[in-house]
């Protein structure tokens, strides 16, 4: 297994470098120049000022040289300097990453747990009212755009009922510590995590349901029944476990989409994570910061995918790691 992991990590690094190069050119293909954006914000745009900014950021150098400098930096784990925020990119991302991880992992956990739970129920009671109800519930959240669910959530739970805070990571100025701080953060986390999680939950519900119905028809389930196992044991140990493989695959694929969803969720709920950092960096053409966020997100997706492969093995011991 170790050699499998090592091989995957090596492949991952190559993929990551390819992503860096591709993104480097992709960003520069978009119209807009960070120096002009910054000059614009300063309300002044004379030749000297823009030239000064371009020199400061190294944008006056030929593109291949800029790429070489950047890749050299990334290889030595230096993500460069943010033009606009005048701070090292790694520091800026480091400040924001924990909030994004908290949000995405919570949303991921919510979506997987609820999705598998609802999917199992729907499959168990296939064709009944409960099945239809779960399907409709799941489809509603799947069909609604994340930003709309977020705004409706704010309207209902913050404005109308005043149960949950509408924005931020914690109550600003409350200076809470310990358990009360954790509770405060959790209260702020509920709406963004649910908004993000419910969308993905819908997919897992549908996937679990379909997959379980398919597995249920297989011969080994009949054998299990013939052996006299209880229905609960069959469902849990035989059907669910075998039905989970496609769900795990999907969850691995979703790791990237989840970060994409976090951009919207973090913006609407003013959640101080890297999704928002990425959005701001994009609008301001803050090339280094944007590339830095891409590198971290790509690395996260690669790590998630590696974990997915390892989980396959846990779910289905028949799968072996080829090295």
């Amino acid at each position: 297994m170790l050699s499998f992991v090592a091989q995957r990590v090596l492949k991952g690094v190559i993929v990551l470098l390819a992503i860096v190069v591709l993104n480097f050119f992709l960003i520069r293909l978009a119209p807009g120049d960070p120096a002009v954006v910054m000059a614009g914000e300063a309300g002044a745009s004379d030749q000297v000022f823009v030239k000064q900014l371009r020199e400061k950021f190294g944008l006056d150098k030929p593109l291949p040289e800029q790429l070489f400098i950047y890749v050299k930096g990334v290889v030595s784990l230096d993500l460069g300097f943010s033009f606009r925020q005048q701070a090292p990119v790694a520091k800026l991302i480091g400040e924001r990453l924990p909030a994004t991880l908290l949000l995405t992992l919570t949303a991921f956990a919510i979506s997987l747990m609820l999705g598998i739970l609802f999917g199992t129920f729907a499959a168990r009671f296939a064709g009944t009212f409960l099945d239809t109800a779960i399907t409709v519930f799941a489809l509603i959240f799947y069909a609604m755009p994340i930003f709309w669910v977020a705004l409706m959530g704010i309207l209902l739970f913050s404005v109308t009922m005043d149960w949950l805070p509408s924005f931020g990571y914690e109550t600003v100025g409350a200076n809470l510590t310990g358990l009360s701080h954790a509770v405060d953060v959790a209260k702020h986390l509920i709406m963004p995590a649910m908004t993000l999680g419910l969308f993905f939950m819908a997919t897992y519900t549908r996937m679990t349901r379909a997959s379980m119905l398919e597995v249920k028809r297989l011969d080994f389930v009949k054998t299990a029944r013939a052996k006299g196992l209880s229905d609960a044991v069959i469902q849990r140990r035989h059907v669910l476990r075998n039905a989970l493989l496609p769900v795990v695959t999907l969850a691995g694929v979703h790791s990237g989409t989840l970060i994409g969803g976090a951009v919207i969720t973090e913006t609407v709920f003013a959640w101080p994570g890297i999704g928002r950092l990425m959005y701001d960096a994009l609008l301001q053409r803050d090339y280094n910061l944007l590339l830095g966020v891409f590198v971290i997100c790509s690395a996260m997706v690669l790590i998630f995918n590696l974990i997915t492969d390892l989980v396959y093995r846990l779910v289905d011991p028949r799968i072996e790691f080829a090295s």
């Binding site: 705004l151 704010i154 309207l155 913050s158 404005v159 005043d162 805070p165 509408s166 924005f167 931020g168 600003v172 100025g173 913006t267 609407v268 709920f269 003013a270 101080p272 928002r276 959005y279 701001d280």
Partner: peptide, 22 residues
């Protein structure tokens, strides 16, 4: 005594922050 400048990127969320007294 103090000023807190709150950073809320979404325009609708800024309106809500005012409406809810934050």
């Amino acid at each position: 005594d103090e000023i807190y400048w709150q950073i809320i990127p979404d325009a609708a969320a800024r309106s809500v922050a005012y409406e809810t007294g934050k």
